[in-house]
């Protein structure tokens, strides 16, 4: 269309481009370069979409097979024995929640205090700490379990939710440290200068300016760590083990007893030859994924609230 206009306007005027062959400026798939380009575009698009197929498959299967079995009863009753009908994973939900909560108690203060130090210093110690935290992020989760087994299970003489929580907190710690440090460093240095210029001590600067300003970012990191910890199985198999009973018995919290968790329940039930258990495993998987997603979404919502630089 555009070319028509041009031609009309140029009517009567000598065409300055006469003799120039414009055809090689047009985009044509017949040219090998263009063709290869288009093919590669298609290929990456296809690969990316293909990478998402498993995600959809997992989600669909969870909703279909897990949703079928999900009920109030499943959420509130104890795991069934072999060949027993009904049952649920109420104690596993409690166990996962309690262990993650205890792990938060261990790792969050630890992580934030470390992050405060890291954000303030650029010395060798800080560098080594940062390196250690990075190493811990790549640390196989099962080794956290091995560590908790050696440090807690062997020392206290039995499997316990405490051991599980220790293992989980080792896994949460690096995420909390690194994201909190980032969040604190993101606080504009002008604000820090303002506080120091008014005669704030370091502690006052941290408590009254840095942490309040950085708190959305820090919480984002905590939520990410929670999401990761809640789904971890390997470190729990031989620290918290499993239990068919409630964590809360006779009015007491049995923190030093073996404890059920959603992840270990899924692992155990997935390998069982009983239909009821397999169905429960899917339902528990749905609940677990929902919990993890909630933690993730909460983290993202918080990070959206972070102040701009």
């Amino acid at each position: 269309m555009a070319t028509n206009v041009v031609e009309r306007n140029l009517a009567g005027v000598e065409d300055p481009f006469a003799g120039v062959d414009f055809s090689h400026l047009e985009r044509s798939l017949r040219r090998p370069r263009t063709l290869i380009d288009a093919l590669l575009n298609l290929a990456t698009a296809a690969l990316t979409m293909l990478a998402l197929v498993p995600l959809f498959s997992v989600v669909v299967m969870l909703l279909w097979r897990g949703g079928k079995r999900l009920s109030i009863a499943a959420l509130t009753s104890l795991p069934p024995g072999p060949l027993e009908a009904g049952g649920g994973f109420g104690n596993a939900i409690v166990g996962t929640t309690v262990m993650v909560a205890v792990a938060i108690l261990f790792s969050v203060p630890f992580g934030i205090l470390t992050a405060v130090y890291l954000a303030q210093s650029n010395n060798k110690v800080a560098e080594v700490v940062r390196f250690c935290a990075k190493l811990l992020t790549g640390f196989p989760s099962i080794l956290a379990g091995v560590f908790a087994y050696g440090a807690v299970v062997l020392a206290t003489g039995g499997f316990s939710s405490l051991a599980g929580a220790v293992a989980l907190s080792v896994l949460m710690l690096p995420t909390v440290i690194l994201t909190s440090e980032d969040a604190i460093r993101m606080v504009p240095s002008r604000m820090k200068e303002a506080a120091i210029g008014m005669g704030a001590t370091t502690a006052q600067t941290v408590w009254m300016v840095l942490l309040p300003t950085a708190i959305p970012g820090i919480l984002t990191g905590v939520m990410l760590a929670v999401a990761r910890a809640a789904g971890e199985t390997a470190p729990l198999i031989f620290t918290a083990l499993f239990s068919n009973y409630w964590l809360w018995q006779h009015g007491q919290m049995k923190l030093m007893q073996p404890t059920a968790s959603l992840a270990v329940l899924i692992y155990n039930f997935a390998g069982m030859p009983f239909k009821n258990q397999v169905e429960l495993a899917w339902a528990a998987a749905l609940v677990l994924v929902l919990m993890v997603l909630c933690a993730n979404l909460a983290g993202q919502a918080l990070s959206a609230r972070q102040v701009q630089r």
Binding site: A51, L52, P54, L55, S57, V58, M61, L62, A227, A230, G231, E232, T233, A234, A263, I266, Y267, A270, A281, W282, A285, L288, V289, V292, L293, N296
Partner: peptide, 13 residues
């Protein structure tokens, strides 16, 4: 999101 799904769920799947 692929990374958010717990590995035990991948195992089940």
């Amino acid at each position: 999101l692929l990374a958010a799904i717990p590995s035990v769920v991948y195992g089940l799947w």
